[in-house]
């Protein structure tokens, strides 16, 4: 005899809009406190910085919605970037190098999925293992040295502009957001992602094929991490073995700030975009205000905790 009424509707809406309201407040405060903040140049710079985290966080949203977690995203970013740069340095074409980098990322993601589904390893442990392993592979592959990018065409991917104004990574971020958003809300795949996170056993008994789904979900996360790695490598003109250290935490923070439940089954992609923007603008604002980087971390931590506290229900 459960209760027959529901506050779900209105309450969920307020909670969902919480991150949007937070972002707007931040915008207003920063606009007042710093004259440089609300300039096209500054905003686009922040968006470009945010794009890397957002790309990873989009994939992470699928993983978390399905009740999992992926700690290996930063490591995959580094290895994929290094392999792409390495292939180009060895004289291969841009297309081959990029495709190889992306394919590698997807493959590593699928391996995560296999460990989680067939191997029945807890996602946290499985991806902690592959994270360490992939970091090691990246260090061996690069021998610890940066691999410079010499191809100017490739450098456009991260450093170029559309209409001489909007950075290409920003455009890529919105394109990937649109595609992923449709994947989540408009396809059977997306429906099954949420169902698995909501109740894996009920989904299995309803005929959802759990293992292939998990391979695809972690594969998607790997692919998007690799994509972020390729873009980052292009923007920085070089690939580094230590690229993306700690990015998994920023991605998870963006997802959670956006209102997606860490226990899976509830969440949305738009929230993740807002979460990533929040983190980006917060960093930028604190920089502009001359807050020391030590305190920046403190502030970021507090914001994340407040968001999670508000998300309880």
């Amino acid at each position: 005899m459960t209760t027959r009424f529901s506050w779900n509707g209105s309450l969920a809406l307020i909670q969902r809009l919480g991150s949007v309201i937070g972002l707007m407040l931040l915008f207003i405060v920063l606009s007042i406190m710093s004259p440089e903040f609300l300039t096209t140049g500054n905003l686009l710079t922040v968006l470009r910085q945010v794009s890397i985290n957002a790309l990873i966080a989009f994939g992470m949203t699928f993983v978390i919605l399905a009740g999992g977690i992926d700690l290996s995203v930063g490591a995959i970013l580094a290895l994929s970037g290094a392999v792409t740069a390495g292939l180009m340095a060895a004289g291969h074409g841009v297309v081959l190098a990029v495709v190889a980098g992306l394919g590698l990322g997807a493959l590593l993601g699928v391996i995560n999925g296999a460990l989680v589904s067939w191997g029945r390893v807890a996602p946290f442990i499985a991806t902690l293992g592959t994270m360490t392993l992939i970091r090691g592979l990246t260090l061996s592959y690069t021998e610890g040295r940066p691999i410079p990018v010499t191809n100017n065409g490739f450098a456009l991917l991260g450093g170029g502009y559309v209409g001489q104004l909007i950075p290409i990574p920003v455009v890529l971020m919105f394109v990937v957001f649109a595609v992923c958003g449709f994947l989540l809300r408009g396809t059977v795949f997306g429906r099954h992602v949420v169902a698995i996170g909501g109740n894996e056993e009920a989904s299995r008994l309803s005929g959802v094929r759990i293992s292939p789904m998990k391979l695809a979900i972690y594969g998607l996360s790997g692919l998007l991490s690799a994509f972020a790695g390729v873009v980052l490598t292009s923007r920085l003109y070089s690939a580094q073995a230590t690229a993306g250290v700690g990015y998994e935490l920023d991605a998870i923070a963006a997802v959670v700030l956006g209102g997606t439940s860490l226990s899976g089954g509830r969440g949305w992609l738009f929230g993740t975009l807002i979460g990533a923007l929040l983190i980006g603008f917060l960093n930028n604002g604190l920089n502009l205000l001359g807050v020391s980087s030590f305190y920046q971390q403190v502030v970021k931590g507090i914001v994340i905790l407040i968001a999670v506290l508000l998300d309880r229900r």
């Binding site: 408009g186 396809t187 059977v188 795949f189 429906r191 949420v194 169902a195 909501g198 109740n199 056993e201 009920a202 989904s203 008994l205 309803s206 005929g207 959802v208 089954g265 509830r266």
Partner: peptide, 27 residues
């Protein structure tokens, strides 16, 4: 509760869980 339903999904989504009406994967 444990095996039959995804409690956080809507009635519509639960009903169509075994077979989502779709064309080429699009709901």
């Amino acid at each position: 509760k444990a095996l039959g339903l995804v409690l956080d999904m809507s009635l519509r989504e639960n009903v169509s869980l075994p077979k989502v009406p779709a064309h080429a994967g699009l709901v």
